[in-house]
C-alpha cells in the first residue's frame, strides 16, 4: 500500500476512524528532512499490512498542525483508535519509526 495523502476534509475518516494503527507524517514540500524521511515511510507502507501510512501537508492543512501542537517537521504521529499514542520529530532512521509501532 502506498502512502495515503490526507487533508483536513478526510482526516476523520482516514486517520481517526480507521481500525488499523495509522502513522501520519506531517510534512511540507520545502522541508529537506521531510523529503529525506519519506522513503522510509514508503517502505513501511509497502512492507506492513498492519499499519496505514498517511501524509499531511501542513501548508495546505495548517489547522491539523495546530490541532496537534506541531511546531517542527517532519513530525510522525502514531494514532490508534482515534487518539495519538506516540510521535517522532525530525529526521530519524527507519528503525525509529518501526519502534513507534512496537
Amino acid at each position: 500500500m502506498a502512502v495515503k495523502n490526507v487533508t483536513v476534509d478526510n482526516f476523520n475518516e482516514e486517520v481517526l476512524q480507521v481500525k488499523l494503527p495509522v502513522l501520519a507524517d506531517f510534512y511540507a514540500d520545502w522541508c529537506g528532512p521531510c523529503r529525506m524521511l519519506r522513503p522510509a515511510l514508503e517502505q513501511i507502507s509497502e512492507e506492513r499490512t498492519d499499519v496505514i501510512v498517511a501524509a499531511v501537508n501542513i501548508d495546505e492543512n495548517p489547522e491539523l498542525a495546530d490541532d496537534y501542537d506541531i511546531s517542527s517537521i517532519p513530525c510522525v504521529i502514531l494514532f490508534k483508535d482515534g487518539a495519538e499514542v506516540d510521535r517522532s520529530i525530525g529526521l530519524v532512521p527507519k528503525e525509529a519509526l518501526e519502534a513507534l509501532l512496537g
Binding site: G32, P33, M36, P93
Partner: peptide
C-alpha cells in the same frame, strides 16, 4: 542517519 548531514535543513 541519512545522507547529506545538516545541509539538508
Amino acid at each position: 542517519l541519512s545522507y547529506g548531514g545538516q545541509i539538508i535543513n
